[in-house]
Design a protein around this nucleic acid. Structure first.
Lengths: 258, 258
DNA sequence: CGCTCCCTTGACGACTTTCAATGATCGTGG
DNA sequence: CCACGATCATTGAAAGTCGTCAAGGGAGCG
């Protein structure tokens, strides 16, 4: 199932946004790839910031060895797989899910360009969650030996701590236990993530299904839909399916924390 | 308000459990303290595992400089305070809370002996949460400069990642959105934490108030109470206030995941 | 063009919250 | 050591919310 979208907005600025049905091109000149990847790694949330000279070269070589393309709906890594690399997300988006014993999956988070995939795993030989592409997605591959670098260690601590803080934010959201507040928080959060990446905070397309949002928020997809309808009735947003338009972001924020 | 309990079970094995109304004694011989603290640091979840020789000495000196005693109900660090140390919890217990703008607090987690306090903060100059003692509590103090050590960096990554994984577990629990399941998961989790520390998994005293549990789980304290009553009626546990007895832990686990 | 998957909406039932009042426990001060 | 007060825990009844089940509509893919 490839449901990549014409208006796909989850694309790293500076990279061409891929049109519908466009498959990932494996061969770009390594020169360009190098520049792009280097660039990507210095964006917020990206890996090395205090790296220099020979270290950088070594790091970049490792990273560039393979950029994995993943099609919409495909699995990047599966829970339980042996872990031997981290990834940085260059373009596209992923969901992190926990595969439960009963066969259902529970969505634990969403990742956008610039995110590092695998931050919960250090010290673990095995992936603890499954990562699935929400749309056609490009990643950089960071072999674990490269991570041994001391300068990277420092960077890694910062990244993992940052992720941990954002998980506490998620806890705050989930513990509110009020459907409309959870949904509003989610929408505001998505808006912020898009804005961080140079996209519109007021007008975007959610790359994930309502079922995924519902799973993430601990609700049913019907409730998510109903809640969004209610918000639309109050004029706080407009929507058509996963296309969201927020006329007044501050109003939405105020209403959320009312 | 000092509500330390005669049957206080949240005490590091090998340390004398303090009797009711016992205040923390500041002066134990530093020799003993050294041995204890050294010991503490090598327990699971504790800081350095790959440290040796001169490094250890330097580290231990830093850690031992001040062991902060905190009385039940007192604040260890407040959200927004400048951060210049981590702590390891030696005896007692803490709650991590987020102070909301409206004056309410939301409980984000509980910490028991062996835990490192401040894992979400690296890269942040400021504490992002408030830590409050649930009972009279002893801590080791780890100045940030000590953390600069490369061997410790590695250890720190492992610890933060571990905490991150446990936060994902929390997400799974919260997203279930079924009161009794949340409470059961919480009880089983507490049981496991006590067992890890050499205490009974079947019979324990919860150090936190029902209001704290409710805040943590995103429920009302009345609902927590009612749910526990229901579990008691089904014979899955006995309780009197915060004293919990679990006759058949496996039965409780099975029922939780039914 | 038809299928499948996803989103939307309705109605009913179960559960949680809310509001309120009582009972228990702990800490304090006499 | 006892008694009092404050905080915390328990229980009841009513109201609101969300989950469940069901059916219809829409968009994309083969």
């Amino acid at each position: 199932m490839s449901n990549s979208d014409a208006n796909s907005i989850i694309t790293w600025p500076g990279l061409p946004s891929h049109s519908p049905n466009t498959r990932i091109r494996r061969d770009r000149s390594s020169q360009t790839a190098s520049a792009d990847c280097y660039n990507c790694l210095f964006k917020p949330h990206c890996l090395p910031a205090e790296i220099d000279g020979e270290r950088l070269t070594r790091f970049a070589r490792g990273v560039l060895r393979s950029r994995r393309p993943v099609k919409a709906g495909d699995v990047l890594v599966r829970q339980g797989d042996a872990m031997n690399a981290l990834y940085t997300l260059r373009a596209g988006s992923l969901k992190a899910v926990f595969d439960e014993a009963n066969g259902y999956e529970r969505v634990l988070g969403f990742r956008f360009p610039g995110a590092v995939i695998g931050l919960a795993e250090p010290g673990n030989a095995v992936w603890t969650r499954t990562f699935i592409a929400l749309e056609d997605t490009w990643l950089c591959h960071i072999p674990l030996p490269v991570i041994g670098d001391d300068a990277l260690q420092r960077q890694l601590i910062r990244l993992v701590s940052e992720r941990l803080r954002s998980e506490y934010e998620t806890h705050l959201m989930l513990a509110v236990n009020d459907g409309s507040r959870k949904v509003m928080t989610f929408i505001v959060e998505m808006s912020a993530r898009f804005a961080e990446r140079g996209l519109s905070a007021h007008r975007f397309h959610l790359p994930m299904h309502y079922m995924d949002i519902a799973s993430y928020l601990g609700m049913r997809h019907e409730s998510v839909s109903r809640t969004l309808t209610k918000l639309q009735d109050r004029g706080l947003l407009h929507r058509k399916g996963r296309h969201i338009v927020i006329p007044d972001l501050d109003a939405l924020r105020r209403f959320k924390d009312d």
